[in-house]
Simulated assay, not measured.
Amino acid sequence: MMEQLTNKTAIIYIDIDDDLGDIGIKTPVIGEKDAFLAIQRASEYIPDDSDFNSMVVAYNLYNKLKSNNNVEIVFIAGSKKGGLDAQLNLSKELEEVIKKINPEQSILVYDSPEDAKAIPIIESKLKIIGIQRVIVEQHRGVEETYVLLGKYLKKIISEPRYSRIFLGVPGIIFLIASVFYILGIASYLLPVVLLVIGIAMLVRGFGVDDMIEKWWENSTIMVVVGILSIISLIIGIVEGYLTSQTIKGSYIFTISSEIISVLPYLTFSVIILFAGKALENALTRNMRVWHDLLKIVAIVLSYYIISGALKNIQEGIYVFQVQLLYMLSISSMILITIYIALSILEKYKFT
């Protein structure tokens, strides 16, 4: 027999990918009456789905406890977009639930590993005293298997988090293959296809797409400058390769020429990142904008000093000229002095 609960408890069914939204159920669902109506609707549209079974489990648990305990049943959902969008929406709905029924603790019911991602979010706002995962074992015939496959194919086509991988990546490969065959360079197709697949696996494996989405929502400026920085870096690498194919001379001359050709693009890649951060800080009136501006100045000075040294090497001068050494010393002292002065000013202003 289950121990009596002394504090108000919310029995929460989690649907992080918002399958309930597909059948017209608006979340959060709060209370026995609305939960019963939601289950009735789900029984009409998704009777074989694990989401329906989980809703029923949560409802039965509520009925079991309600006679002797202060409990309330709740259904909350995330978003079809998945990732950060789903987590933010679920967090928003949970706050709405807490505001309406003011529970002190919760029991969670869910059916998939994806739903389990919501547990830390709920735990940060509400004490969890119980977790029940619903595992539905079903024996399906051939026709039911085709229905199930059709359901997953629909998910692949309609849900962005699946379609990016199962449609987007093959689409890019087919497009590249078509272009390569038209240009008559099909011999390069295999390494390029492997590169695309490798990049897709890295992006999905390390959650780079979710990270970019998070950056975009938090800072559109940084995403834009990040893309420009990557483009500049790629152009620099191509430029360095083309330089290595055209420059003829000694090994040191060739290497220095390659670095000189790549250096402007590399410098721009770094500068634009700090410039984007400086712009973001300026728009939010953040005092630390001077940190980014100082870094930009240091990078520009470093570019001129390095490029000057490399040109000396190309001309056969393997020892830094006095002028370059003087410029390096003076610029370093100036930057250090400015940094110390601004640090003191910043500390004085915020204390």
Rank of each mutant, 00 (worst) to 15 (best):
E213I: 06
W215M: 14
W216T: 06
W216E: 09
E217N: 13
E217F: 08
S219M: 06
T220P: 09
T220G: 11
T220I: 06
I221F: 00
V224K: 15
V224A: 11
V225I: 09
V225T: 15
G226N: 08
G226Q: 05
G226W: 03
I227A: 11
I227W: 12
I227E: 07
L228C: 06
L228K: 04
S229G: 14
S232L: 07
S232V: 01
L233N: 06
L233I: 11
L233C: 13
I234G: 10
I234L: 15
I235K: 11
I235Y: 05
G236C: 10
G236E: 09
I237M: 15
E239I: 11
E239G: 04
G240Q: 10
G240W: 06
G240E: 08
Y241I: 14
L242S: 09
L242C: 07
L242Y: 14
T243H: 05
T243V: 07
T243R: 05
T243Q: 13
T243G: 02
T246A: 13
T246V: 12
T246H: 12
I247K: 12
K248H: 12
K248M: 10
K248Q: 15
K248I: 10
K248C: 08
G249D: 03
S250N: 13
S250H: 07
Y251F: 11
F253A: 02
F253L: 03
T254S: 13
I255Y: 09
I255C: 05
S256Q: 03
S256L: 00
S256V: 03
S257H: 04
S257I: 00
E258Y: 07
E258F: 10
E258S: 05
I259N: 04
I259G: 02
I260R: 01
I260W: 00
S261Q: 14
S261R: 14
S261D: 07
V262G: 04
L263Q: 02
P264M: 08
P264D: 09
P264F: 04
Y265M: 05
L266T: 08
L266Y: 00
T267A: 13
T267F: 03
T267N: 08
F268T: 01
F268P: 00
F268I: 10
F268D: 02
S269G: 14
V270L: 15
V270C: 10
I271H: 05
I271S: 03
I271P: 09
I272Y: 02
I272W: 00
F274S: 10
A275V: 09
A275P: 08
A275L: 15
A275G: 11
G276D: 07
G276E: 07
G276R: 00
K277M: 12
